[in-house]
Design a protein around this nucleic acid. Structure first.
Lengths: 186, 186
DNA sequence: CTGGTCTTTGAGTGAACACTCTAATTTGAA
DNA sequence: TTCAAATTAGAGTGTTCACTCAAAGACCAG
């Protein structure tokens, strides 16, 4: 992939994957459909991606990064920003967030590498939340911040899970309730 | 299905379906896998079930009902009891709880009847939690109790979701953390 | 222009899927 | 014991899937 043509094709494939996930869900996102929508043949797809899963994971990862308030991890994000970013992801990319959760759940047990990545991702998020908590309230103990950070992340995941089941679920409202309670506790 | 043999085979098929959904998710629950695990051939399966979906829906209904193991106990349970009951369910019936989560993630949307059932069940659980909160602290406003009840249920579901991804996850510890924070808020 | 590398083509592969069908076997009421 | 109905066996159907590969074409530095 050193010529311009390859990069453009890659973009078209990722864009097609994105829109297919949004329109048809994971089931409808087949190689054939992706290739058709991108105006490409399977050979080209596999010249740029090693598997269908790789393309899907790329799309999901990009979507998550796109709403990250502090992509460089400088430690400048506030609790509010972290929660709002998550809510934005859930509301603006409902299908991708569904895919994200789905991949995590269906990878569990069958793909240890993927499961390891999800767990690692969870730990990182907990740490960022805990750090934000301590920045917001420097007197809080390290262990308490860690515990409350994890509680928050888990609760947000619960909200995300419920939105997958009930698309009409008001994610923003419940996330704010979570933040209010977190503030009341501190 | 009027002979004993048929009923026994039916039970073995449902048991196999349950454990397969829990272990491999919906994707891994194929007719071939179900039949192999149940020690049965496809002909027998289709003698007892009209489709794969029928068998799966049977198992899922059972899982949804099992999430609330004691629906008769309205009005007397404390918040602690409700949380402890859910934790016990997660720990003692890991298969059913995984079925519940996995279907919520990958099955919702495909069967509106099932989705409606999950949403209705969520509402009932929220009401029981809110009622327990108000019993514990009669001064709390109705809307606040409802909000905190739902926050609790969502957070517990988040814990359940994470346990599916990471089986080593300490459900009891995090549930207790949740209760402690809920007490601190009130 | 040339030549090696990158990219695209598109038919093809094998596996997996839900489901069917007929014949053989087992069951249990009479 | 008899026999119709219930159950099981197991090969087979047609479809769809992710993925491959050899050959043809496009690209661009030298």
């Amino acid at each position: 992939m050193r010529y311009k043509a390859g990069l453009e094709t890659r973009d078209r494939i990722l864009e097609a994957t994105r829109s297919l996930i949004a329109e048809k869900g994971l089931e409808g996102t087949t190689i054939k459909a992706i290739c058709h929508q991108a105006g490409v043949l399977p050979g080209s797809f596999y010249n740029l991606f090693t598997s269908k899963e790789q393309a899907i994971l790329t799309v999901v990862r990009e979507a998550i990064d796109a709403v990250d308030p502090d992509p460089e991890h400088h430690g400048t994000d506030t609790l509010d920003e972290l929660v709002v970013a998550y809510v934005r992801f859930l509301e603006e990319q409902p299908d991708l967030s569904r895919v994200y959760i789905r991949i995590g759940v269906s990878g569990a047990g069958s793909s240890p590498e993927l499961t390891g990545r999800m767990i690692r991702h969870h730990r990182e998020r907990v740490e960022r939340f805990a750090a934000a908590l301590r920045r917001q309230n420097p007197e809080i103990s390290e262990t308490l911040a860690a515990r409350r950070g994890e509680t928050l992340v888990l609760a947000l995941n619960g909200i995300a899970l419920h939105k997958v089941i009930d698309p009409a679920f008001d994610v923003g409202w419940h996330a704010r309730a979570l933040l209010d309670d977190a503030a009341a506790v501190s």
